[in-house]
């Protein structure tokens, strides 16, 4: 590995099978600091399996995962992972939910909660501290889940379809919110999505995953600098990316 290489996360030749069926095969993937990378592909291509390997929940059959050059293959707790559902625990207040990863890392309950709450305004969660998840709208729950993911991370997060459960209008406003938050915090992210527009809108780079077993079949760099124009998704440039992406799928 080169010295000038600024990959925070590298995974090489990852393969994983279950009950003799190979789900993903020889996957190479990397993530640079503060980069937003998306992973698109049909359902069943093994995207979630790949995330489970990257997060350390699954041990791959072959290959390794490195975080800042350190081997973390099969070691959970290093890379933050937001699962498909928001999974806010219904029996904890939003403050406690978001502080949970800090408590698990060994911080005192009080300081953990203070740290979490200090970020509430940045994440647009003011006034939700003492509420329970069932009292929040879908968009707000997603914000809380993102804050929890951010607090669980040492700078790297994996998001599995973070916006898929939201309706179109909420989704659009969440995209804007997400980009503005990402400018304020340091978080290198890989996210899974089925939504091509979302991928182009938010990402610096897109991986395309397909086949059975799933492999990385393509990669596109979205060169448009951030912050991107308001109507980026209506520009010629955007449509060109979309055309390329659809052809590759």
């Amino acid at each position: 590995m080169n010295i000038w290489d600024n990959n925070v996360l590298t995974a090489e030749s990852i393969s994983k099978s279950f009950d003799g069926t190979v789900i993903i095969k020889d996957i190479d993937i990397y993530l640079k600091e503060n980069e937003i990378v998306s992973l698109v592909g049909q359902s069943g291509a093994g995207k979630t399996t790949l995330f489970n390997v990257l997060s350390g929940l699954y041990m791959p059959d072959s290959g390794f995962v490195k975080l800042n050059g350190q081997d973390i293959t099969g070691k959970p707790g290093k890379v933050s992972y937001m699962l498909q559902k928001d999974l806010l625990l219904p029996y904890m207040t939003i403050a406690d939910n978001t502080a949970l990863p800090l408590i698990i890392k060994g911080e005192k309950k009080k300081t953990a909660r203070e740290k979490a709450v200090s970020l509430f305004s940045k994440f647009g969660l003011e006034g939700c501290e003492k509420k329970y998840p069932s009292q929040l709208s879908g968009g707000m729950r997603q914000r809380a889940a993102l804050l929890r993911t951010y607090l669980a991370s040492d700078g790297i997060a994996l998001l599995d379809e973070p916006f898929s459960a939201l309706d179109t209008l909420t989704k659009t406003s969440m995209h804007k919110w997400y980009l503005s938050v990402m400018e304020q915090i340091q978080l290198s992210t890989i996210f899974i999505t089925h939504d091509i527009d979302e991928a182009i809108l938010l990402s610096d780079r897109i991986y395309i995953m397909s086949g059975k077993p799933g492999t990385i079949t393509g990669e596109i760099v979205i060169e448009t600098p951030k912050p991107r124009p308001v109507n980026f998704n209506l520009t010629e440039e955007f449509l060109n990316y979309k055309r390329r992406l659809v052809e590759m799928l």
């Binding site: 350390g56 707790g77 699962l83 559902k85 999974l87 625990l89 990863p101 698990i104």
Partner: peptide
């Protein structure tokens, strides 16, 4: 999944 989430937090 909730168990996975906690496991992913270490």
């Amino acid at each position: 999944d909730a168990v996975s989430l906690l496991r992913s937090m270490g």
